[in-house]
Amino acid sequence: MSALGHYLEEEGLATVAVALIRPQAEHTRPPRALWVPFELGRPIGPPSDPAFQKRVILAAIGMLVEGGGPARIADFPDDDPREMQDPSWNAPIDLYAGAGDAAALADAMQTEALAMAPAYAQSCTRRARSTVGLSGLPPAECSGYIATWLRGQQPASPVAGMSSALALRFAIDDLKAYALEAALAPAGKPSSRQLGDWLWNGTALGAGLQQLRRDCLAGDDERLKTVAAFFVPALRVSPA
């Protein structure tokens, strides 16, 4: 991102980068950067907090009319209040109690996905949006496609113009988004850690993706080995 600051500014456009990783900004030395202490993925800070977000943006664009450059880095002083856990939040669904073999896990994952539908619909209505859509498949088809892989089969791609491995990756992205958006239906302001703990420790989807990742990495299909790296976040990988 800091490199884009160089390229655009060289073309005559004043830029300011909101930087999450300060050492990278220090190394790349863009014209202006505002380092923010928020977790990766949240450059403007907490969701659903317009006042806080506006302070971040004003701190950033304010640098456009300040001197002290080039290669000026400023620090935003405040942490994201949404990193705090919200004890009032409850998971939208609590069905998963462990499953036996991969086929049982696949069944549990599909059952769970169906059971999440009301919470997902409620969440979509409240937010007037969904971020599901990368694969182009509805959530139930994403779930079915992933479950087929989990059962050890190698289905053809259900998406025109996309290889089966790429369709698997995007179906997984979509089903994770579906579950995490369903998790926004209950009242409360959950932190990303709370949501992640639920997804990866308390759902059949989380357990299924861990299993599928291990299966793909243990196989000899290089395309599957490549996409398997994008199933489970590094901090959530379970060895067995």
């Binding site: 993925g41 949240r42 317009p50 937010r127 990368l134 992205d173 995490l180 199933f231």
Partner: peptide, 26 residues
């Protein structure tokens, strides 16, 4: 939609409120 290849950053914020990544409303 967010089609970034990395899965090692939070997407919950963007899912709840697009302004976390794309602050057009602000």
């Amino acid at each position: 939609l967010c089609s970034h290849i990395s899965i090692n950053f939070d997407r919950n914020g963007f899912q709840e409120d697009w302004n976390v990544v794309f602050p057009l409303d602000r």
